[in-house]
Design a protein around this nucleic acid. Structure first.
Lengths: 258, 258
DNA sequence: CGGTACATTGAGAGATATCAACAGGCGTGG
DNA sequence: CCACGCCTGTTGATATCTCTCAATGTACCG
């Protein structure tokens, strides 16, 4: 058995997080019977702005919907009929060029709120990576609910502004960073994104494929793969099954060029 | 006199827009004495959401500030003490990497509202390209004014969402388009952006430098220049003084790859 | 155990960057 | 009014990074 393989299995053996990320797929719509106050993501998401009374009303607006790995939750030119709040799993948000080239705009995690737009149409597509549960709200009902609650609007605006800030950072990455800087920046950024969910850790699960990473970074799959290998060879990371282990965060930061 | 030079002068001779764009620089702060209802950009900007009574109050919050070509209006890590509404001129919005590489995030035009953020700090820098006038609001006062006016917040949110949409388009450009596609897309997009100000026209002023365009598109100045020349050689554009003339919009659209 | 999808690795090609020279426009100052 | 110098933009030659094409390896699943 080759060395890398052995190391991978050892790493895998000790990884509890694997189960959380790699579980695959149920399909169903839970018609009702969930409670906002028990919702695991309430404190992170838009709902954080609502008080107990509002939550009880809010409960009736949303319904949980499940998606399996690879399913499309909504598509770029779809008319927006509902907003949704990601409850469990990871999604890739992306746009396609007519010839099929894909740019992944970001990966959504539990607590992310999707669907805001101006044109009445989604302006990007969203797929489930692994099994996903969302809390879905009819657009009209949600709009009415929000109408009377400026604090909810403020919360949504806050999320939009935060997202804008991330988008700007990503533009810098796409336009001005080298492949190595892109990969290092991605690994550090993704680790950061996971902190609210898993706490800080140098073991970084990567539920998305290499192709997804490539399309996120504006690279090809081969360049991503080679860069991972190079980072491993110089001892900055270790490639483990379903993710990486960050062996030398300081070096990684240096390679990311801030 | 070389042919290109002659053509340029001929084109220039007929260009009234030149004066609007190429005028250079006054410096001053007008202490007061302007009126929102006479403001040329009122209908495009955040203020569009305010009624006559509100405008009269709003008037006292803002003051006009002038900047000359190349001046920095605010800087990336500055604490945000004020928001501003661009009244006249063009600004470049950008971020820098520690080693000086620059990514221009976009060009701001009259009507654009700048300064929303979450961290309390600007997360990008903004320079004047040519002379610029902004309507500046103290953050605290503006915040109080907005507090009681959800429609203003809604308007701001709408602008943020629109900006997000543009940011996403730009990520696709930066990550997945070739140099030629980038340049063609930029020219068409910029022409589009100018429509609310100048009306539709195939004469497209380019107040920003080639370096600015390069930093916007994630290219080098040389590549931008070569691409312009190539587009001119194949008859898609004509390079004129201070801008370009779009000779074959359909071909340009095709080259932009949607 | 074989098939399929995903990941890694290698060799070579190509697009864009880099380095360098030159040209043109504009303002300054004689 | 012209000469000079500076700044911006263009063009050319070469380098390099990343992509493309191709083969091999590895894990997962029936």
């Amino acid at each position: 058995m080759p060395t890398r393989g052995r190391l991978r299995l050892e790493a895998e053996a000790g990884c509890a997080w694997l189960e959380r990320w790699m579980k695959s797929s149920l399909v169903a719509i839970e018609p009702n019977g969930h409670f906002c106050k028990e919702c695991s993501i309430r404190e992170f998401s838009v709902c954080a702005s609502l008080d107990a009374a509002e939550l009880r009303e809010f409960e009736h607006l949303g319904r949980r919907v499940h998606f399996t790995a690879g399913e499309t939750v909504f598509s770029e030119e779809d008319v927006t009929t509902s907003f949704c709040n990601l409850l469990e799993g990871v999604m890739r948000l992306y746009k396609l060029l007519p010839d099929g080239r894909r740019q992944i705009l970001g990966f959504a995690l539990p607590g992310d709120f999707l669907g805001m737009n101006v044109s009445g149409r989604h302006n990007f597509s969203a797929d489930a990576i692994g099994a996903v549960t969302v809390c879905q709200f009819a657009k009209a009902a949600f709009g009415r609910f929000m109408e009377a609650r400026p604090h909810l609007l403020r919360r949504i605006n806050e999320l939009a502004v935060r997202e804008l800030s991330q988008a700007r950072d990503h533009m810098v990455l796409l336009g001005r960073r080298s492949a190595e800087e892109k990969v290092a920046t991605f690994l550090l950024g993704w680790r950061e994104q996971l902190i609210p969910l898993n706490g800080p850790s140098n073991t970084v699960p990567l539920p998305m494929s290499r192709q997804d990473i490539a399309d996120y970074l504006g690279l090809t799959i081969e360049t991503v793969s080679r860069t991972f290998t190079r980072l491993e060879r110089v001892g900055v990371i270790e490639i483990i099954h379903g993710g990486i282990s960050l062996l030398d965060p300081a070096r990684a930061e240096a390679l990311a060029a801030a």
